[in-house]
């Protein structure tokens, strides 16, 4: 069954179509890559799915239920949560408190939330820094903090917006392993990424956006051999 389904989703800003008639489905347990040139509408699509923008047209279904027009907090409680391209740590709070805010989505008890949070910090490898104030973390650890925080909300579907952006190769590799681990735990993921090697490696299927429209969809192998995608985005070296 499709955990997430988009039917003819469009988003207009004035006369500009940031997303135009985008339809696709996301199978449970899979990793879906979302790629495309800058300004193709990838983050806008995330904003529409998670309720930050009202969609101009079309419908979105999560676990078979319509979620079009729901606020982000409701969407999160239903089990879908996103990370931010530009990370958003709660800077004056400690690393542990940041993750606890996520965990409190599922519990009212601080001690239970603390346990969930520590567990997720161990998963991303940030547990030694649990007492640090988030403001002091370097970018690589901020990205991990963001991952731990969304995992603490016990999601069924994760939307990851460029979690490898700005990371060095070693850090990127850690995130890749983390994404694959999360998949092992049965959590479905949709990943926006510009690192083509990474996205080809982790994705089960890929959707390509260009100028707001869906240009292609398929397995990584199909995508790299699609002439339209090569012309619009990938360039010849990947072909």
């Amino acid at each position: 069954m499709a955990i997430l389904e988009l039917r003819h989703v469009s988003k207009f800003f004035g006369g500009l179509a940031a997303n135009s008639d985008v339809s696709f489905a996301l199978e449970e347990g899979m990793i879906k890559g979302l790629i495309g040139p800058n300004g193709a509408g990838k983050t806008t699509l995330f904003n529409c799915i998670t309720g930050y923008y009202p969609t101009s047209r079309g419908e979105i279904f999560f676990k078979g239920n319509p979620i079009t027009g729901l606020q982000p907090d409701r969407v999160c409680r239903l089990g879908m949560v996103r990370t931010w391209q530009k990370v958003r740590p709660l800077v004056k709070m400690s690393v542990l408190d940041n993750v606890m805010v996520g965990a409190l989505c599922r519990t009212n008890s601080l001690s239970a939330a603390r346990e969930i949070a520590m567990e997720q910090l161990r998963v991303v490898g940030l547990d030694p820094k649990s007492g640090f104030i988030a403001e002091g973390l370097p970018i690589g650890e901020r990205k991990k903090l963001e991952m731990a925080r969304v995992l603490a909300t016990k999601p069924e579907l994760l939307l990851l917006d460029e979690v490898m952006g700005g990371l060095n190769p070693a850090e990127s590799e850690e995130i890749i392993q983390l994404i694959l681990d999360i998949k092992q735990r049965g959590i479905t993921q949709m990943v926006i990424e510009h690192d083509m090697k990474a996205i080809m490696r982790i994705s089960d299927r890929i959707v390509v956006l260009n100028s707001g429209e869906k240009l292609a969809e398929g397995t990584p192998a199909e995508i790299v051999s699609n002439q339209e995608v090569v012309d619009a985005y990938l360039g010849e070296s990947h072909a």
Partner: peptide, 9 residues
């Protein structure tokens, strides 16, 4: 916005 995305009304 981050709070909103983490399930806070």
């Amino acid at each position: 916005d981050a709070a909103h995305s983490l399930g806070i009304n």
